[in-house]
Design a binder for these strands. Structure first.
Lengths: 240, 240
DNA sequence: CAGTGGTCTAGACCACTGA
DNA sequence: CAGTGGTCTAGACCACTGA
């Protein structure tokens, strides 16, 4: 085995040709048979390289036609949505979560979204503040489906905030984030120690496991105190 | 060949066991040799299934140890960052871009970021407002590297806004978005027809082609008028 | 029909790493 | 040392699809 695998070298070669513009969108990549000769390897190896490029969306492949460079209509970026406790710890700050309110209740009768989340069970509502180095950092209101996550009623959130607890105990299969701005309500402003109506970053997230809703959460951050970062680049694909 | 490929069936089987919680994080997936017997297939086939799970971050694999279910630390979502003109058109609204200012200048001497973007060339600065159905929608300040994109000096932005022009004419390989909130400045408030200091969603984006900077842009949206949406789900991975 | 990719097999040698 | 994954080969049959 050489330093880097051959299939990886082939993949990088072709990716380079695409990104440098040497092969334009719509342009053809050599067929697997041709690449076998160029690299003096088996078809399985070039197939692996081309399949990865296909998975990454850089090319598409069709029988008889061959492998073609895709158009960069690809405007999707990768947004890391980290656990707040983890993120604050990584900054070297001390983390604390303060529970403002904690109630078990049924879904509101006039709220279809809550009813979908609750299913046939009840909801745990938790309101709290994330605190970094004794300064309030995020105001959070969260609903959790007890039908999906019954064991969370025993959790102690002064020890571990509900978001982190859920991450440790439940695998989600689907999530949606809506990111916007809002003006701080009186309660939010009091919790974050900022003036009423000042500008806040607002993140609303819903997560599911298959068809079952797990949680929905609304987080507010004082403007400038926190940003989300989304990236697109060639250094993707490294995990764990 | 059956309806779905065998490697895909194996992948889905194991994914199901992970997502349902039948195998917990840290739990072991059978070795390739064991799975060969279970599914009565060759090692290459189970390897392909397990490799895809590894790429997706659901498991990690180590020699001698085997394949282990990863902790769901995997909090990366896909954020679509669409072209504003396209997005407004898709909503069925009429789109217009109003140029507030347009200047060609050198990088500011005390601004390292501008100097990196400019390289050895000058910068095109464009300030403008995106308008949907005659209502101001976004306030935008943009710098474009003329070293990288010299032909943009001839573009008519009343016809096509600079962001859309760039999308049509330049392929980028890397992009970074910083998403936060801010309070509207006097100028921004005037352009968006909102009160000074009201809450705005702020998107700052930089794009590169290889090592060369293409553009950096700062867009502000009145709170509530626009949201970004990021998703994670099983319907990912379909491209083109 | 003929070219191209999709998938699979049976086997091989090797690298890494826990015991 | 022994088990496990990483990679590769040479070959096979098939499905799809443009000409």
């Amino acid at each position: 085995m050489s330093e880097t695998a051959l299939h990886e070298r082939i993949r990088a070669d072709i990716e380079g040709q695409i990104l440098s513009g040497a092969v334009l969108p719509g342009g053809k990549i050599p067929s697997e048979l041709e690449l076998m000769e160029v690299y003096g390897c088996s078809r399985a190896t070039v197939n692996k390289a081309l399949s990865r490029l296909n998975d990454a969306g850089l090319v598409y492949r069709r029988r008889k036609v061959g492998t073609v460079v895709a158009k960069p209509a690809n405007q999707s970026m990768v947004l890391d949505v980290p656990d707040l406790r983890t993120e604050i710890a990584q900054r070297g700050q001390t983390y604390r979560y303060h529970v403002v309110d904690r109630v078990i209740r049924s879904a509101a009768r006039n709220n279809d979204e809550e009813k979908r989340l609750a299913g046939k069970g009840r909801l745990l509502f938790v309101k709290g503040v994330h605190i970094a180095d004794d300064r309030p950092f995020a105001f959070e209101e969260r609903l959790i489906s007890l039908a999906t996550v019954p064991t969370i009623v025993k959790a102690d959130f002064t020890f571990e905030p509900p978001g982190s607890w859920l991450l440790e105990h439940i695998a989600w299969t689907e999530a949606e984030n809506i990111i916007g701005a809002t003006a701080a309500s009186e309660e939010c402003a009091a919790c974050l120690a900022i003036p009423v109506d000042s500008s806040c970053l607002l993140v609303e997230r819903r997560t599911w496991r298959g068809e079952e809703g797990i949680t929905q959460v609304r987080q507010q951050f004082a403007a400038g105190s926190y940003n989300l970062i989304a990236r697109f680049g060639p250094d993707q694909g490294k995990k764990q």
